[in-house]
Every structure is written in C-alpha cells, then in structure tokens.
Design a binder for these strands. Sequence first.
DNA 1: AATGAATGAGAGTTCATTCAT
DNA 2: GATGAATGAACTCTCATTCAT
Lengths: 189, 189, 189, 189
Amino acid sequence: MGEADKREAILEAALSLFVERGFHGTAVPLIAERAQVGAGTIYRYFESKETLVNELYRELKRSLASHVGEDFPTSGSPREQFHAFWARMVEWATKNPEAFAFLEFHSHDYLDRSSRKVGRQGRDTGLRMIEYAQEHHALKEAPPLLLVGIVLGILQGVMRVKWEAQGGLAVSDEDLSLAEQCAWEAIRV
Amino acid sequence: MGEADKREAILEAALSLFVERGFHGTAVPLIAERAQVGAGTIYRYFESKETLVNELYRELKRSLASHVGEDFPTSGSPREQFHAFWARMVEWATKNPEAFAFLEFHSHDYLDRSSRKVGRQGRDTGLRMIEYAQEHHALKEAPPLLLVGIVLGILQGVMRVKWEAQGGLAVSDEDLSLAEQCAWEAIRV
Amino acid sequence: MGEADKREAILEAALSLFVERGFHGTAVPLIAERAQVGAGTIYRYFESKETLVNELYRELKRSLASHVGEDFPTSGSPREQFHAFWARMVEWATKNPEAFAFLEFHSHDYLDRSSRKVGRQGRDTGLRMIEYAQEHHALKEAPPLLLVGIVLGILQGVMRVKWEAQGGLAVSDEDLSLAEQCAWEAIRV
Amino acid sequence: MGEADKREAILEAALSLFVERGFHGTAVPLIAERAQVGAGTIYRYFESKETLVNELYRELKRSLASHVGEDFPTSGSPREQFHAFWARMVEWATKNPEAFAFLEFHSHDYLDRSSRKVGRQGRDTGLRMIEYAQEHHALKEAPPLLLVGIVLGILQGVMRVKWEAQGGLAVSDEDLSLAEQCAWEAIRV
DNA sequence: AATGAATGAGAGTTCATTCAT
DNA sequence: GATGAATGAACTCTCATTCAT
C-alpha cells in the first residue's frame, strides 16, 4: 500500500465512522482499526484528530465544488444553469452518500478558519449563480442569500429523506427530478 | 427556587451552552455553573448528561409541535393550513431562536429511541397535512415524504440564513413572508 | 484531609518519586497512588505535570532561601556570615534530604521562566554575601561568581557524599564542620 | 563511512542532543537525523536507547580517566600530583565541553550496574591520590571521601560557572588557576 | 548492511459521575 | 436536598523499537 493509499484509507475509515457515530463519538484507534493501520500511523499523516477531520471536510467540499463547477454552462439560461447545478449536486450526493451526509447532516463544531473559508466559498458560488439569474429577471426579487438558503434547504431536505429512507420507501431518480422542479418553482418569478 | 424552577434553569443553561459549544463541547459542571446550581444537583434532576439532552430535545420538540398544533385550522383550505403552519413555525423559531438552532442546526447523535419517536411525530403531523392537501388536489403529485422534506428544508434553510446573519444582513419579516410564498409555490400544483 | 493537606501530600509524593526515579521516570498515576489520591485529583491542584514539578521546585528553593535568610547576621563579620550560611544550608539539607537531593543532584530540564528566576535569586544572595566579604578584604580577589561556584560546589560535593553514603560510611556532623572550614579556607585570603 | 565512524557519529549526535535537550527529551529518530543515518541503523550499533546512553557515559568517563591518568606523576609531591590532576581535568573539560557537561551537569537516572561501576572507578582513583597525600601529611585529617567530594565539587562548581557564563562574564584560564589554588587550600593542612 | 514508515504500549490529561459533607 | 471535590475510565497523542524493502 502506497503512502497516498494509506492516507486515503484513513480518510475513508474516518468518514464512515464520523457518519455512523459522529466526530466526538469516534476514538482515533477505531479509525485506525477500520483503516487497517496502527493507531500511531494516523499521526504520520495528520497532525491531530482535529486536523484529520478538517482536511476531510475540505477535501470533500472541494470535490463537491469541482464536480458542480466542471464545464458549468456559464452562458446557459438560468434554468439550464439551475438544472446543471441540481443534477450535479444530486449526482455527487448519490455517488458519495456518506460524504454528503457528513457535510450536510452533521454539525461541524471543530472547523478551523481555513475550513470555514472553504465552506463559505461553496455558498458564494451559489450566490453568484442566483444573482446572475436575477439579473435576467428569471427569479423572484428576494435577497439572494435567502434564495440560496431556500435551494440548499430543499436539496438538503430531500437528500435527508433519501438518506433516512429504508426499505420500500426509497427516493427514486424521478422523485429527485420532481424535487428539482419544485425547487425551481420556489424561486422563479 | 422551587424544584421545577431549578430543573428549568438547568435546561436553559444546557440549551444555551449546547448551541454555543455543542453537546460534546459542554462539560456538565459548566452547565451547573451557568444554571447556578451544584454539579451534583444536575443528577437529582437527570439521570445522566445523555438523559438531560434527550429530555431537552423532547420538550423543545413538543413545545414546537404544540405551538403549531394549537387551534390549528383543521377545516381550513390547504393554503390556509400551510400559512398557519409556516407562520407558527416562524413565530416559535423567532421567540426561541436558541431552541430552534439546537433542534435544527445541530446533529443529535445521542438521541434515544423515545426522542427519535418524538422527532418522527412532528414530521408525521406535517405528513398528514400534506396528504390532506393532496386529497384536495392543491399539491403536486409527489411522495408526501418528499414534499415534507422540501418544506422543512426550506424552513431550515431560511432560518439558518437568519441565524447566521450578522450586522446589516438581517432577514426581515417580509423576507420570511416571501419565503413562505416560495415554499408554497414549491409544492403547490 | 483538607485541601492544603492534599496538595501537600501530592507534592511530597512527587518529591520522593522524583528523587527515586527522576521526573521523566515518574508517571502521574504513580504520584497519585503514593499520595493516596485519584489520578484526576492531581489536576485539580496542578495544571499539568510540568506545573507540578515547577511549583515543587520553587517552593523548595524558597524554603531553603528563607531558612538561610531568617535572622541572618547581616552585620556580622564575613566569617560569622559564612558560618551562618553554611550551618543553615547543612541544617536544611539534613532536615530535608530528599528536597536537597532533588534541588542539587537532579537536572531540571523542565523549569519555566519563573522557576529559573527563583533559582537565580538564591545564587544572587550568595553573590552579595561574597561581595560584602570581599569589600572587607576577607576573601581572595577572584570573580565573585567563581567564589560562589566554589562554595556551592563544595557544599554540593560534600552533601552528595553524605547522600550516597550507606552503611558505616556515614558523614558525621563533625565532618560537616570540617568541610565548612575547608570551604572557608578555599576562599579566604 | 566505516562502521566505527558511523558508531562514532551516532555517539556524537547523541551527546550534543542529550546536552541540549536532556536524555528524555531526545527522540531516537532525532539522534539518527543529526548523525545522518537511518533510525533503524542505530539499533545495529546499540541494543536500545538505554544501552546507547550507557555506552556513551562509560566511554566518556574512561576517556576522562585515561586523560588524567596518562603519565601521571606517580612519584611527584602531593601538590604536584594535585596540579596534574586539576590541570588535566580542566584540559579535558575545555576540549570536550559537551562531554563534561553531560557527565557532570546532568542526572543519570538510566545508568546500569556496569556504568555505575565505571563511575565509581574514577572517584576511587581520586581517593587513592588523596590517601597518598594524607600519608605524606600534606592534607587535612578528614575522611578521604570527604576531601574527594570537596575537590570534585569545586571543579564541578567552577566548570558550571564557566559553562553557564555568557557574554563578557567568561571564566579565564587565570580564573581556573586561581580556582586550583582555592581547591588546594581547601584540603591542605 | 541500511533504511524509515509503521507500530502499539504507555504517557499525560479530561470529564461524566459519585458521595461525604 | 444540595453541594463540589474527588474519582478513574477513556481519551488523544508520543516515541522506542521493528521489519519489509
């Protein structure tokens, strides 16, 4: 196992445990065990448990941001942009359910300045998309922050239902498309 | 100070500290100090720190539910019912900002079975309202759980913006009414 | 057991263990065990293991300094002053053999600024006594620091012999008086 | 680099680090780094960190002893012998300041039986010199151990002043000669 | 023979909980 | 009934030592 692999194994183990038991409920040796490394090894890759969770947070935030931002239809219509945004968020969340759960369903009382900055950047990107759409009179005349809150809230609310769904109550792709339409109707003029 | 008062003081102290520093970041003696009681006293009112946070959670959930449910316009139109629901949620969240922040912006990895049941009851009430409205063909034909997720998501998203707003960026009552309209347009036919 | 007693018990336990096994060879729970308190209790009285050893160091240094300084024959002849100094040092070291061993036979790589300052104060007092005696032409014309080093070196060397003596090789009071005379002859004109 | 060179490099690195940071404050990989070898290599030359420090201690003690003992004026007068002893000790300490600091200013709580034996041998040599001088009625009638303690104490005290001296307070060769005279006057009849 | 990444025992420390006062 | 000093289990983290390369 190469160095990068080991680092990755630790991050993956930490992610799944943080989602299962929360950050504070997860002891470092438990992460080590799941990652199949010694407890001390974690400290060759991360300065501390806090550093570990912060790096995990930032890497996931950045992964999500880059997935949404790649080849974004910058010159598309507001509705096209909204679709791109929604579809990619859902895509990422579906491919990385634990990562999405970690980012969105858990509180992050351990974030350092750098991580909080990364957290804000994601929101700011959404903000610019909203402002652009408002300039095209495609959206309601409301404070952009409010509209961002509404859209992200819907996304979170819907994904939480999907996450919590067990057994036959699964949320289908069709449902997610429907939710996109709901979200659009929430904010459009 | 009577027994009930002391219990209340402990719960209030715990609430504000949990919101400030998170459940795990709050030491029991700190709660005692803020509540102006001895550390041991807390254990005359609550079996453990976990019990305390669970009872706090349930009492707040019930308070919110009863505020929303009291004199609910059971026979009103779906839109009237939706307005009642929204306005009362916002009212309670505005009167009890810390309580709302605790319930909605923090992860609750410590909830016991009983608390999770109470948590579900709130959602189920919303579910029945949605189903009732769907029977009247006022809402989109989507899984009720999805629509509940959307509405609660919007509410949470909007209130989070309000909570995080500092300085001149405050979210006004007008904004909240606008958000209500957004939420309605998200789910109505 | 009162608060001060418990603090004292911890300091005493720590002193004897530090002398036996060195600072780094002494685990905190071991100190607790010998002091007959819980491991956590130590942290109610001392911020950390380092704080503990620093406070111990300073209290002993101060005790020694005050024993030597009390009713010191400020206006006595240099020889009288020297006798007072020597006799009191020996007296304190004999009454507190572990304390003297801790202060003089162990290296103190953990001392903080405050402790180092206290350490220097003791030496400076000796320095002033030497300078006073030199002004009276009672001592050799050598750098005062050197003479202080010589006297303290002799004291330490002699007490180390006493400390290490086991069985029939004990160092008697008479020997210590002899050593005083040696020390005086080392520095006098 | 030959085997012996590598061993030497490790011992030198260890010595300077032990003097700077103390034995317990020095991590083995740090010694390896300064010696420009891999951490594991140290364990091809020394069984353990304890073995390493013990061998270092013994080699330095032996080096000092042999420097003092070489061509010692066995049939010289007590004063001549004393001068030879003092001058050679000072010479060695001046040429090997870190080694002297390590041997004399640090506590050695890790010494094994063999090292303690070597430590005693140095003192025993001094003891025989003292006894020889006493037989010639050149010294005070005091327990030889005491006189050895006095002389070694002075040497240590003086060298400590020199070691700690910084800036313009340096201890000169002249001062060291003066100190020799002090030491002699301390013990002579 | 040499390396240094990996290890895990053991360190210092915290804090939910207890119980003598 | 109320207190808060005391507790010790469990945590995070370090570092002497090993061993696959």
